[in-house]
C-alpha cells in the first residue's frame, strides 16, 4: 500500500506501480475459464434490443420456451456460476510465480474452506478440439488448471480438487476453449447443503465471437460414460442460438421407469423461436413428439403434439412459426 501511495504521490510515471510487464501474467490469468453463460433470450434481453412486441392477454405463454429458459438459468446459476470462484482468486496477486506455474491463494472463502487456484503451462505442441463442433486449434502450449480447497489451517495434504481441466486461452475478454470437470462429491465435503453429486463435465469454446458449451451432468464415476442430464448450447454470435438438453428422469409416474426427455430449442435474434420435443423410453413405449413456436414476445403461436392432452392441445398453423422455423429439428437431428 505504501508503494501504491508513493506512486500516486509522485504523480510521475517513473515507478512501476502496476502489474508486471509480463505476457505470462496475461496467459496464466486467462487460462482458467471464466464468465461462461448460456444466453437464452428473455423478455428483458429482447427489450434491451428494442424489439419487444406488446404482449396481449389472450395469448398463451410458450411452455417449451419457458422450460428452455429455466434450464439455461439453472445451468448458469448452478454449474457455471462455480467458475466465479476463479474471479475471486485472480484479483489477488499470485502467491507463486514460476516460469510455468502460477498459484493464487490460499484465500479464506468461508469458515469451512480456503481456496487456491493452480495453473500450470504445458509447453507441448498440440491440436485441441474440446466441443463437438469446435474448430480444431493448433497451439505450441496449453494450460492445466484446478481449483482446490482445504479446511482452514490444514496442511498441503488436505487439498482436494473441486474442479479442474485443460484450456487454451484465445483473444480477449475471456475467450478461449477448454474442458473441465466439476467434482460435486468434493464440493459436498465443504458444503453439505449441495444436493448434486458425481462429476459434471463442461466443454466450452468461446472463440470467434461464438459460444459453444457442452455439459454432462451427474456422470457416473466408473464404467461407461453415463450422464443423468446433458446440455449443448451454441450461439451464432449475432443473437440467435440453439440449446439442446436431455434429461433421464421418471417424468411419467405410471411406473418408476425413467423416461428420456429431449428438447431442441432454437431462436432468432429477435427472440422468435421454436422448440421440438421428444420423450421416449420408460412409460412411453413409442415416441411422444411435440413442437412449439413462439413469437418475439415469447407467446405460443403454434403447438403440435403427437398425444394431445389438456396442457398440450394443438393450436395455430405452422406457418405462424415463420419461414426460418417451419421445419422441426428434433434433438437427434
Amino acid at each position: 500500500m505504501k508503494w501504491k501511495l508513493a506512486c500516486v504521490a509522485l504523480a510521475v510515471p517513473l515507478a512501476a506501480c502496476n502489474a508486471p510487464f509480463s505476457n505470462d501474467e496475461i496467459l496464466f490469468l486467462k487460462a482458467a475459464p471464466r464468465g461462461l453463460r448460456i444466453e437464452v433470450p428473455d423478455e428483458q434481453g429482447v427489450q434491451h434490443q428494442g424489439l419487444r412486441v406488446a404482449q396481449s392477454d389472450e395469448r398463451t405463454p410458450a411452455r417449451f420456451y419457458q422450460d428452455t429458459l429455466r434450464s439455461a438459468q439453472e445451468a448458469n446459476d448452478g454449474i457455471l456460476s462455480l467458475l466465479d470462484m476463479v474471479d475471486a482468486l485472480v484479483v489477488l496477486e499470485p502467491s507463486v510465480r514460476e516460469d510455468d506455474k502460477r498459484v493464487w491463494g490460499p484465500l479464506p472463502a468461508s469458515e469451512a474452506a480456503e481456496l487456491a487456484l493452480v495453473v500450470t503451462r504445458v509447453r507441448t505442441a498440440t491440436v485441441v478440439q474440446f466441443t463437438s463442433t469446435s474448430t480444431p486449434a493448433e497451439a505450441d502450449q496449453y494450460f492445466e488448471f484446478y481449483m482446490a480447497a482445504r479446511p482452514p489451517g490444514t496442511g498441503d495434504d488436505a487439498w482436494v480438487v473441486l474442479f479442474g481441466g485443460t484450456s487454451l486461452p484465445q483473444t480477449s475478454n475471456r475467450q478461449g476453449t477448454g474442458v473441465l470437470a466439476v467434482d460435486f462429491d468434493n464440493f459436498r465435503r465443504f458444503d453439505p447443503t449441495i444436493d448434486a453429486a458425481g462429476l459434471v463435465y463442461v466443454a466450452y469454446d468461446t472463440r470467434f465471437e461464438q459460444t459453444a458449451i457442452d455439459l454432462a451432468i451427474d456422470v457416473v464415476r466408473q464404467g461407461p460414460f453415463m450422464a443423468k442430464a446433458a446440455w449443448a448450447y451454441r450461439d451464432d454470435g449475432e443473437g440467435g442460438g440453439r440449446f439442446v438438453y436431455y434429461l433421464i428422469e421418471d417424468l411419467v409416474p405410471t411406473t418408476p421407469a425413467e423416461e428420456i426427455l429431449g428438447i431442441a430449442a432454437r431462436w432468432l435474434p429477435t427472440g422468435r423461436g421454436r422448440a421440438d420435443v421428444v420423450v421416449t423410453e420408460g412409460d412411453v413405449p413409442t415416441f411422444y413428439l411435440a413442437s412449439e413456436c413462439w413469437n418475439d414476445a415469447f407467446e405460443r403461436v403454434y403447438l403440435a403434439s403427437s398425444i394431445p392432452t389438456p396442457d398440450f392441445t394443438p393450436s395455430g398453423e405452422v406457418s405462424a412459426c415463420g419461414p426460418d422455423l417451419l421445419s422441426p429439428q428434433f434433438p437427434d437431428d
Binding site: 510515471p13 512501476a16 502496476n18 502489474a19 508486471p20 510487464f21 485472480v90 475478454n173
Partner: peptide, 10 residues
Amino acid sequence: DPDLKTQDML
C-alpha cells in the same frame, strides 16, 4: 479486457 490490469515496467 476488464480482467487484465495495467502492466508497467521501468
